[in-house]
Design a protein around this nucleic acid. Sequence first.
DNA 1: AGTTGATCATTA
DNA 2: TAATGATCAACT
Length: 226
Amino acid sequence: MIKPATNPPKTIDELVTRAQALAGLTLGELANWANIQVPANFKREKGWTGQLLELFLGAQAGSNPEQDFPDLGVELKTLPIDSQGLPLETTYVCFAHLLNVSGVTWETSNVRNKLNCVLWVPVEGSRELLPAQRRIATPVLWQPSQAQLAVLKQDWEELMDMIVLGGVEHITAKHGQALQIRPKAADGKALTDAIGADGQRVKTRPRGFYLRKQFTQQILLEAFVD
DNA sequence: AGTTGATCATTA
DNA sequence: TAATGATCAACT
């Protein structure tokens, strides 16, 4: 019987092996073995699936602003898919810092670091399916290609330029081919500091970087071709 | 308030 | 119906 991991994987192979062992299982089965209740829906516990997978794969507990497996340099991401295996949602990457970002380059950025190596775990996510019935699919260990990196870098630089130049308020989710910036907060009241249009400090809603569905879909399809 | 895990739900 | 903008929970 499969049980929650009590120790982090020592190698990437071990991590991938663990993830592959979960393929085909439902979230209900996993929750059962972990003695966890499955929510009826994700209206409230939106991050439930991700945290369940962290438990079974041995990721570090807690919400540190780091990779899930710092020793391996691997980030874990669940990806909701439809019946055809295509992504249902965009993928949150990381928080977008809006202040003191003038010295940060793409190469040293949080986005680049997070996406250096990602273990994608697709999970059925159609809303008609009860969470307990949703099955885990075959995991994909991904490293961005040169072409993908180029697109991400271009998007990131465009968005960061706008932030540095005081254009935060003009950024919408329509910017960026692969990478977009959207609000990321508990509610509309949360405020953080940013650079205003005239270089002054202003309050604005916190933002996060997200990967478009088309981009993650490409990752899954390329892995399938392998 | 910031950052992790994300999905929800209204709009276009 | 897809995408944008909004929101939920846990933990620090």
